[in-house]
Write a protein that binds this DNA or RNA. Structure first.
Ligand code: SF4
Ligand code: SF4
Lengths: 145, 145
DNA sequence: CATATTTAAGAGTATTAATTCTTAATTAAC
DNA sequence: GTTAATTAAGAATTAATACTCTTAAATATG
């Protein structure tokens, strides 16, 4: 069941690492994150570049540089990250879909899936990095094994 | 949002074509299905071979041969097809997942996603080809553009 | 038995996603 | 200014998925 690409999964996990690790400096280095989460440095760098271009992150080069959230973590919603990394058409085609399917031309599971899709969408819209960060700090959930 | 592979999508649509087109003979030819649904003959043949090997379909070679459901359509559930084509581990790893995630080691969205996953699973378990076939015959939904 | 029809099997190709690698640019500190 | 640290950019590679093609086997019919 592949709901999100590796790109999105890594991206979200990395951002959650940032919000759940109150850092000393202004910027968090990508190297630190990939070391902690055991991700590929180059791959995450590429993912973060995309998020920087989309205005979700700031970046700063040089010693003690790194990346930082462009907005307070309670104003960054999961949906922002998913749409930035998966594309704005993320919710368009989905379960059984033939070309041109949708409300007008529903596939046999459209009625059911419409509800699921709304649940997912509203959850992604209403969940901020800050909320999930708190859960991690409270050790209710975790980011790695 | 790619919940199912093309393989599963085509497979399910093709089976639904069968149940929604009461055939004259015992077997339906793959050529007829791919012509109607505008799918690749060779690709669907491969998908059906898998379903035949898994015991979901019967096949018969030669003139007026084809494939047929191995059980009455009200006894074939969507979950059977999905697990056959996506693998039995379909529900194991899902939204944010790191290696080894799950109930014991929940990722930050596990609580939410657990519910979604159960909804999807129970719907797939409780929906038969016959049920969807009826909806198609009633023209509530459709299989192609 | 010859021919036409149809699935079986799997090799081969193309496209996309995932990951790695190389080189450049920016910045801090000495 | 030299060096070290760090992100930027994007080419190159690998792996997975999607799709196509070729050949073989089975079966019905004349
Ligand atoms: S659920 Fe609706 S949008 Fe999704 S594939 Fe079916 S018809 Fe298309
Ligand atoms: S929701 Fe549960 S099973 Fe799915 S990825 Fe998160 S922890 Fe793993």
């Amino acid at each position: 069941m592949k709901v999100l690409s590796q790109t999105s999964k890594y991206g979200i996990r990395a951002l959650l690492y940032i919000v759940s690790n109150p850092s000393t400096g202004e910027y968090v280095s990508i190297g630190e994150i990939t070391k902690e989460l055991n991700l590929s440095f180059h791959f995450l760098t590429k993912i973060f570049r995309e998020l920087t271009n989309k205005g979700i992150l700031y970046s700063y080069r040089g010693p003690s540089g790194g990346i930082a959230l462009a907005k307070p973590s309670d104003q960054i919603m999961l949906i922002d990250i998913v749409l930035a990394l998966e594309g704005e058409d993320y919710f368009d085609n989905c379960l059984l879909g033939f070309p041109g399917c949708g409300v007008e031309k529903p596939c046999p599971v459209h009625n059911f899936w419409k509800g699921i899709k709304e649940d997912i969408k509203s959850h992604l819209c209403n969940t901020s990095l800050a909320q999930l960060g708190e859960k991690i700090l409270a050790e209710e959930v975790r980011l790695f094994d």
